[in-house]
Write a protein that binds this DNA or RNA. Structure first.
Lengths: 137, 137
DNA sequence: GCTTGACCTGGAGCGCACTCCAGGTTCTAC
DNA sequence: GTAGAACCTGGAGTGCGCTCCAGGTCAAGC
């Protein structure tokens, strides 16, 4: 048999590796941690951060919340609920559903606005096709 | 025949009326004007602003640019081109097309993110349906 | 004519989400 | 063991897009 090997510790990531994988900056990672968006990350004996896979997954979820327009304050609320455990799943679900509905509204509004940009673009194209007419807008 | 009437001056709007119609605040309207986003608005002899229909239409266009994520700096560039007249139509068209393409990208990204929020929501729903399993995220 | 509310200006202040800095500690490679 | 890169902290600074303020002027109704 093979000799007993040390438990293959789940590999951890340095902050530089997390920067590379998430696109967040060092400062933003520290800011998110200070703000309570991520629970205290593991440390080496020398006090340097070592991120685990679960931290990375959570960060990626936070990034999605941010990219869909959630404020830091709301992310803090969400993170706090998460930290309180399973009992808060209904609250988290409610928050997420509300955020999802807001997002749907915003996407609809963007599409409407996109359509009117298209109209404006068409207007300019026509101006270029038949020049000479006084421009109105 | 009817007696000669004074030219029915195109009715103008006070700033309060524009606030009401656009949803922009007094301060934002003045800020936009100072920033050159709208060309100097007409004034009464007493120096109070009187907006014309064309001003309102332009403001509504600016609002669409803003709502689709254009920065004030880019709106300034656009407004400046507009102020320079017909010769800049090609530049304006190019700006608008680029902005439109960015917008399409952002809408696509939002839809992708929305889909992954939906996954997360489903995950929570399943957690609630079959409680007891240790929660992972 | 007077009151009251709407409007004017320049400039300071604010909230958000980072970003930068100084000064020190730790890690890695030689 | 040492050099240099990576990392640590608290706190100050930044850019954006407004928002507020003080101290005045103007306009409309009585």
């Amino acid at each position: 048999m093979t000799s007993e090997q040390p438990l293959p510790q789940e590999p951890t990531l340095t902050i530089a590796q997390v920067v590379e994988r998430t696109g967040l900056s060092h400062d933003t990672l520290r800011y998110y941690e200070k703000a309570g968006l991520i629970q205290r990350v593991g440390r080496t004996t020398g006090n340097q951060r070592r991120y685990e896979a679960a931290d990375l997954a959570w960060l990626e979820f936070l990034i999605r919340l941010r990219e869909t327009g959630m404020s830091i304050a709301d992310m803090q609320r969400f993170a706090e609920l998460r930290a309180r455990g399973d009992a808060t799943v209904p609250d988290r679900l409610a928050m997420l559903r509300e955020h999802r509905a807001d997002l749907a509204d915003r996407i609809r509004a963007l599409r409407r606005n996109a359509a009117s940009l298209d109209d404006k673009i068409d207007h300019y194209v026509r101006l270029l096709d038949q020049p000479g007419s006084d421009e109105l807008s």
